[in-house]
Amino acid sequence: MHPKRKQRLTLVVLMVVGVSLAAFLILKAMEDNLNLFYSPRDIAASAPSNNETIRVGGMVVAGSVVRSQESLAVTFDLTDGDAIVTVSYAGILPDLFAEDEAAVATGTFDGNQLNATQVLAKHDENYMPPEVADAMKSEGEY
């Protein structure tokens, strides 16, 4: 084969192999790491399986935040105005976490409560996570 053509062929083969490999890796990684967003209403309607990582967002119910006296364990309720989900978390809550404010928790649902590995709150006074805003809006409360 002409050397220039041979070079081109090598490049094309390399590209095809590379692209397919990359596509495979991307799809694989995607499959394992997508976290679906649930509103408390969705969970009440059909509970997700307990090995699936999900995100739940809503308003923190006033008076529901309970801190343990021995450790950093905390529980609180999230609501979209319709249903309520209890979240359990161990660690430091974000600065803007407060009752009657929006929060989004990531974790697994054990049938009873969400065991959160991460809790996010809004990051400034005027901001609400779009998912939470949507969930509240469809309830006509926001």
Binding site: L25, A29, D32, N33, F37
Partner: peptide
């Protein structure tokens, strides 16, 4: 398809 977020693990894996 629902509201999803992509976890940090996805990016790290690649």
């Amino acid at each position: 398809w629902g509201k999803i977020s992509v976890g940090a693990q996805y990016f790290n894996a690649i």
